[in-house]
Amino acid sequence: MVASTDRQRGSLGIPSAVLGMVLFLATEVMFFAGLVSAFLVVKARWIGAWPPPGQPRLPVEVTAVNTVVLLASGVILWLAAHDRAGQQTLAAVRRRSLIAALLGATFVTVQGFEWTRLLAYGLTMRSGPYGSFFYLIVGTHAAHAVAAVVALLWAVARLGSQKISADGFRAVRLFWYFVVGVWPILYVLVYLM
């Protein structure tokens, strides 16, 4: 993402890598809004109890703990990047970013483990709108989380060899914050409501 020539920041004063990521995330927000609104429409038209009787219950408690893990990764990444005293070395930035990536990977692993249990209990994509929307929405988020882990590990590696610009690293962090920030909303909508 390092631009080929020296680019001015323009009247907005936002670096290109960050502005590009913000535009991408705006599209992502609308994408998730589409999924969530589809879910809410189908749920609102559902006749009878929701979740439907006879379907497995979602692991609310385990996922609550997992939510905290993901939120912690966001906080640690934020701390890695915002050092008020200016004492932080590059090695420390990389170490904290790596911890954030590992917490993200933990989140995805626990999610995957819970999925295998739910599948064993008979909740599949074909077992009705309840299962379909659960795997669709949570699965889409998981795919984003995997992409965010890969992107952050890539950025950590590039930080070591100084091959990523400060703006490029900021863009990767913005993506991470998006993945962390959208999850509590999905958790409340899918697991609790």
Binding site: M30, L35, R126, P129, L136, T140
Partner: peptide
């Protein structure tokens, strides 16, 4: 974004047998 969301759901209906 919403259309991509809808298209994924339609593709799942076509290929995975969701409803």
């Amino acid at each position: 974004g919403p259309l991509v969301a809808g298209a994924i759901m339609l593709l799942f209906d076509q290929l995975l047998g969701t409803h």
